[in-house]
Each structure stands twice: as C-alpha cells, then as structure tokens.
Design a protein around this nucleic acid. Sequence first.
DNA 1: TTTGGAAAATAAACAGTGTTCAGTATATTT
DNA 2: AAATATACTGAACACTGTTTATTTTCCAAA
Lengths: 204, 204
Amino acid sequence: MGITERKERERAEMRRRIVDVAIKMFVEDGYEKVSIRNIADKIEYSPATIYLYYKDKDELLYDVQHEAFATLSEEFAKHINHKEPFKRLEQLAFAYVQFARDHPELYDLMFIIKAPMNVEHDEEKWKNGDPAYDALYNLVSECIEKKLIRFKDPTVATLSVWAFAHGFISLDLRCRFKVAGLTGEEINKVVDQSIKEYLHIIKV
Amino acid sequence: MGITERKERERAEMRRRIVDVAIKMFVEDGYEKVSIRNIADKIEYSPATIYLYYKDKDELLYDVQHEAFATLSEEFAKHINHKEPFKRLEQLAFAYVQFARDHPELYDLMFIIKAPMNVEHDEEKWKNGDPAYDALYNLVSECIEKKLIRFKDPTVATLSVWAFAHGFISLDLRCRFKVAGLTGEEINKVVDQSIKEYLHIIKV
DNA sequence: TTTGGAAAATAAACAGTGTTCAGTATATTT
DNA sequence: AAATATACTGAACACTGTTTATTTTCCAAA
C-alpha cells in the first residue's frame, strides 16, 4: 500500500521541479524578472498550482536560497584545502568573494534581499545559512585557539570577517562605489587588495 | 513679468511637497509600503500628476535619497568634533552606525536597495553620496598623512572602513545574523565591539 | 469681459504583480 | 459503477508603475 508514499514522492518531485526552474530563472534573468507566473509558465502549470506546493513566494525563495547555499558550500569544498588554518581562512574569504562575482543574483537572494527571511520568523534560527556560517566559525575558532589571529571572541571574529567581505560585495553589487569614481576593474582590484590587507592586519 | 519665474518656483515647490511626503512615508511605513498612489493620495493629487514632476519612481527616490544624505551629514556635523583626527574617525564610524539604527528605512534607500541607482547610469558619478564619502575620505587621508592608521592607499582605507561598517549594518538589517543565534541586543553589542576592535587594529 | 490657447490635473486604461477561490478534471476508494 | 478525495485551473481581487486621452484651470490678447 505504497500509494501514500508515492503521493508524497510526487509532491517532493514537483517541489524540486519548481525550485530547479526558479533558481535557473534567477541566475539567467535576475531576481526582479522572476514572477510566480513566469515560473508557472516554464513548468507548464497554472500559477495557482504553485500555491498548492508553496504557501507563498517567500517560502519558495527560501528553498531557492537553500539551493544557493549548497552551491556556495561546494565552492568552499573545492577551494579550501590548505594545511595551515590561516591559509584556509584566506582561501575561504576569496572563495566567498569569487562566488559573489560568479553568481550575483544568488548572492542577492542569500544575503541582501529581504524576502526569504520572513519565513521562519518564529524566533528560530536561519537554517539555510548554517553550513556556510559554521565553516567560517569553526575555521576562525581554530585560528584563535592556535593564536593565528588577533581575536579573542570567536563570534566577534567570525562576524567581523564576514561583515568585511559582505560590505565590499554588497556595496559593489549595489553600485555604491560609483561615489569613488572607480571603474569596474579598479573596484575589483581595490576589493582584493583591501581583503588581503585586512587578513594581514588581523594575522598575529 | 515674473510669471515664468513663478511657474518655475511653483514647480519646485510641488517637487518639494512630493519629496517631503515621500520621505516621511518612508520613515513611517517603510520602503515596501510606499507606492506612487499612496504618495499621490497623501498630497491630494492624482497619481498621474506625480509623473508631471518626476519622470519615474526612481527619479523621485533619487531626490528622497538626497534628502536622506542631508540628514546623515547633519548627524556627522553634530557628532564629529574631536581635535584628534583618529578620534574623529571613531566618532564618524559610530555616528554612521547610529544613523543606520535610528533610520533603517533611510539607510536602506541610501545603501542597500537597487532602485535609485539606475538614475544617472550614464557613467557619471553618484552625486548623492558625495558629501558623506568625502567626509570619510578626507578624514582617512588626514589619518594616513599623520601616520595614525596602518594604511597607505587612502581609497583602500576609505572603502575598508566603510565596507566594514556597512557589512555589519546591512547583514543586521537583513536579519542574517540570525544564523549566529544572537538576540537583537547581543548583536548590537557584538557590532559595537567589532567596530571598536577594528578601529583599534588599524590604529598604528 | 469674453475668448482662445496654453498649461496643469485627472480618469481610465494597460500590463504587470502576488494571491485566493469556486469550479472542473483526474485519481482513488467504496 | 458510484462516491469520494485529490489535483489542477480560470477567473477574479487588490495591488503595482506608467501612459494617454480628456477635462479643467489659468492667463493673456481681442
């Protein structure tokens, strides 16, 4: 009597189909051009059908965000391999920046736009960001323990490194560096140099 | 025969009225709830009338952004008064953070949302941000000249300080620190401490 | 003071959005 | 085969930014 299981499986498959199309459209057309109607068109279902699988757009975006974090984790796994913890911290920082440059629309969804954060506002944690945060937190903690960086509190250290990188990325993504009168290539150079310098001055 | 002048003055007054109402609604109700129709309602004109004074919503938001930067400059003028340049840099940093906490919706418009940056995309500069950027740039430059901070390039230094503060503010405003499992008050403390520590380690 | 033309304001519409709901089609159970 | 439960959709609701044709208001010359 596996019909309940099959129904459940079919439901999961439909959700996958929706998320897959959604993330693909995000990457290709950008956040602003992805509507429920567009997604429905592409999977060849009525817009109302999407609401049978997702309570609202935010809930769908939350799953898309989850997928985006999986890609970030893959990038981390690919580029963080050095023996020394501090070197791994450098690798993580530049992998993070590179991810943002390669997938600006995903970065948007993960760290800048408001939308998918309204989902689990029940005082709970934000589960999507967990693996990436833990990767940074554990690495920073190891660096503190081995006295490789000038920090005492691992949370302060983790948030500082994160905020520093995110500050550059998000200001760049939102064109605020126009105020400095730099070209795109110049900005990239300044960002890279700034992060290098930051990692240097926090190094013990 | 000052009728042309009067017409021009009336036009300017109307634009002022629109911007004043818009910024007030922004602060009170938040960016997402402010529509052209809402603004039109409040100034008791038809929505179409707004388009006689502003080409589109972005152009209006650009003027609102200008107003918001004026408020930031006022805050800077109010809180930056120390003799020593480095102390002034500290004052600037915390005035910036305090502004973001006091006016989150304005901060959004100034530094986070995409909208008003599409206006002068003609390769030009971003004039709205100029005064605030210059204030930071000049102060940082003075600190470098007097060898008070560990930086050589004033642009790298300016963008680093800005990005560091902005990173914290924007991640907080977008609830991304939920991943760290901290309460609102705890986050504020970590942010303050992090900025203090950052200013300490860049101090020569 | 009336009239003609310019300027200002608007009602209504267009094309789009997220979302809901009544009704239809399909699948499963009795 | 009939009854029931599930899956799906067309159409609507209440919005959004924006445009256009129309009306109202203003002002200067006849």
